[in-house]
Nucleic acid binder design. Sequence first.
DNA 1: TTCCATAGAAAACAATTTGTTCTGTTTTTA
DNA 2: TAAAAACAGAACAAATTGTTTTCTATGGAA
Lengths: 194, 194
Amino acid sequence: MDRRQQKTRAAIFQAFIELLARKSYTRITVQEIIDLANVGRTTFYAHFETKDDLLKALCETLFGHIISSAADCVHTHGLYSDGNAPESVFCHLLQHLQENDHNILDLLSCESSEIFLRYFKDSLNELIQTQFVKQGKIGGTDIPQDFLINHISGSFVEMVLWWVKGRMKQTPEQLDLYFRAVIEPILLFTYREI
Amino acid sequence: MDRRQQKTRAAIFQAFIELLARKSYTRITVQEIIDLANVGRTTFYAHFETKDDLLKALCETLFGHIISSAADCVHTHGLYSDGNAPESVFCHLLQHLQENDHNILDLLSCESSEIFLRYFKDSLNELIQTQFVKQGKIGGTDIPQDFLINHISGSFVEMVLWWVKGRMKQTPEQLDLYFRAVIEPILLFTYREI
DNA sequence: TTCCATAGAAAACAATTTGTTCTGTTTTTA
DNA sequence: TAAAAACAGAACAAATTGTTTTCTATGGAA
């Protein structure tokens, strides 16, 4: 890819992230983005059809890294390594988030965080889905597989939301323990051990 | 309140809900709302400062009913009546949603459902908060109270989202069973019996 | 029923915002 | 070095927003 394109794309992303930290997605105008990114109007529209398109591209880029890294983790350790080992995918994901790679934390704590969390959840859902094979039984109740998957990915992103809104006072390891405690009973019955 | 005001307000709400079923919140313009509601431009801005203000008012009106009804339910039965009795607040809430009072389902299944679910979750959070008194212990792990509250309200709204997106194939009673199965271990250790 | 305060309609308005189109310049790459 | 591609800048119509003004209709109290 052309260096100019890379620079322009990066500048637009950066400006967009900075603006998201200040105001809600809806209130951000294309004009503000191109002013801050210092690119021409024509250039912006050459890269992205609309503001929504930019949002989508940003999501794909940022979560693409995190999720594919988590996918590797899952393929080697499984969703949830046994016992108290710290290699659960969830811990891995939380650590990644804490490192604030590509300013992803700004997006998750900004006014429009729901947009990104929704994308995050969908990606996570696909990831978890690959790890489930059969229906789970908990306390004699038959529970559909997709209900469980949704419960896990949903709980996780809601936890992340709670975490970042509370200024991330807990460590990823702590959070992982909490999450295991509320999710473990389900995983034990449904997760395919590799 | 003046009958004219009531009519106007209702017409705007109705038009807004109809439009939300068709397109995303962002793409809806004030012009479209007033055209469909058949009210003057001046009138709209006499009732609501902005489109966001309208959204907020709609949330307050719709979720106000459901939550206060659930609050009554909690005050008499507690969060979660013992055993297999069907009077859990969660079941109550799901039944209310299924009745589609004031077209609330349209909002929860529309493209901008996250906006409403977020409001829903906040209301639910407050409701559950009143029912917790002490920290919970699960499997020897100390878990902060607000983590648990967030987990419950978060899981619930994510479940509702999953439910409406899947065209609500399950009955509220079925869903309640699923939800209890994944939440019960937590509730048992933390919920104050009345 | 009458009266008046208030709600609403209609139109016009400036100010933003959007997305496109033009021309000319700079940078990459073949 | 020359062609191709990316970019800047400006100008543009169209749509949208929120306000203002003038006038009409209506509800509720006396």
